[in-house]
Nucleic acid binder design. Structure first.
Lengths: 245, 245
DNA sequence: CTATGGCGTTGACGCAGATCAAAACTGGCG
DNA sequence: CGCCAGTTTTGATCTGCGTCAACGCCATAG
């Protein structure tokens, strides 16, 4: 009775069939917990929206009226300090949920990196949806729990790892992302800028650039273009990421 | 129909009536989502356990067979790197849940700071409990979502705040903890050591000590004993915590 | 073609916080 | 009481990464 964890849960009532950005495999745009009949009904209350690159579509501190499900593209979530310092708390792609927390305002902002499509609906609608489909609630609990584990891993990175280890962890993680599609994971694209990577890893742009250059010089990775990475030694990278060297 | 968020949810089938560590107010050791009859039945499958200070009762990497609910005391959750570097991801007290994530091994370790009592039961039992009491599942989703928000706040701290700001944030947070009981929050105890604080804030023991000394010298706080703090200026501390100075 | 502006890389230098070291304090126990 | 082990504080020094600055690359506009 457990809900499948291998497919992204997508609430878009008009499911797209866009090819995977890495390979040409079609995304499975189906919701595993809600029957098609309900999905059709959803389309009358849910709004499907697009956000162009650089567009902020959730503002930290604004009244949290809606609940979001990403159905295409990549967005960054971040928090700001008054003087402009920024911490990116995560990059989210198709299947991710935003705005789950019970709070009257959003705890973070969200900005589109590439062309993002998302499904937005009111919290009231979410509540009734969860009442009708307990499986959906179960699934959300699983999702939130797993994100919590990822957040703790990121705390370890931010609190205790060196710049080298942070970059190695980041690259290893990015290469692991691609397991959903059949694409070989050694080579992959980095949709975000150096500034985004820096703000995600708690470093500066310069340190990110320098460290990547060094990792390349050591033969661990290759960087054919600023937005593309090839892992030369997955094992060595993982070892470095876990602080064993 | 929403479950109360103001009281800690405690699953201990033998609820204690220990006074609050700060004042003498009795803890509300009741479960808001599960009727007493079920709580009684729970006592046949759940195990209530005690952990003495310094005892590790969850080991990262071990098979995740159980689910925990803290019913007394304070514990620290942490992750380790192979060379011993440690990141404390949180301090948990009465009402907190551990081991929610769907994973075959624990993602962190847990160690008792003072005398900890907790209720342990199998994941299978949790699953059937959630099937029987949807309110309980709703509550867990709320809890997990709010912890996720707290984790993001901590990422901002670890990635972008200075040592001063980290300590100010930590002290402000600790003083806010006491709002459940009626105790005036200016003065409170720090049950954890300087080493724990350091590993929680991504600093060293020395930096924590020096920074606290400096905050005291500046009149923001007072430290009658190493384990006790008095907030002299809550407003100034909060301002400092948010990076506005 | 040149101008402009965003992004990435590289170099020189400085500093916040880590590291190393030692002294002061604390509680437990004979 | 005095001894001991663990914790906290304080001081001196070091260093990884931040800061500041310059430059190269590319895309778009004029």
């Amino acid at each position: 009775m457990t809900v499948s964890l291998t497919r992204p849960l997508v609430l878009d009532p008009h499911p797209g069939t866009d090819p995977c950005v890495h390979c040409d495999a079609r995304q499975a745009s189906v919701c595993n917990a809600i029957p098609d009949s309900e999905m059709a009904r959803l389309s009358t209350t849910a709004v499907v929206m697009e956000a162009a690159p650089g567009t902020t579509f959730i503002d930290e501190g604004e009244p949290a009226a809606s609940f979001f499900n990403i159905t295409r593209g990549t967005a960054k979530l971040f928090k700001l300090l008054p003087d402009g310092r920024r911490q990116i708390t995560g990059f989210v792609t198709v299947g991710h949920f935003l705005g789950l927390a019970v709070s009257d305002t959003y705890a973070f902002s969200a900005e589109a990196i590439d062309n993002v499509r998302y499904c937005r609906f009111s919290r009231a609608r979410l509540r009734s949806l969860l009442d009708d489909f307990p499986l959906m609630e179960k699934r959300l609990l699983e999702v939130a729990s797993n994100e919590l584990v990822a957040a703790q891993e990121q705390m370890l990175l931010l609190g205790r790892k060196t710049a080298r280890e942070r970059l190695a962890s980041f690259l290893a993680m990015q290469s692991r992302q691609g397991v959903i599609c059949q694409h070989p994971r050694e080579r992959f694209a980095l949709p975000m800028t150096r500034g985004d990577i820096a703000d995600y890893l708690g470093l500066t742009i310069e340190t990110v650039s320098r460290t990547l250059t060094k990792l390349r010089a050591e033969g661990l990775i290759d960087i054919p273009s600023p937005t593309e990475v090839i892992i030369r030694s997955q094992a060595a990278l993982e070892r470095l990421a876990d602080g064993a060297s």
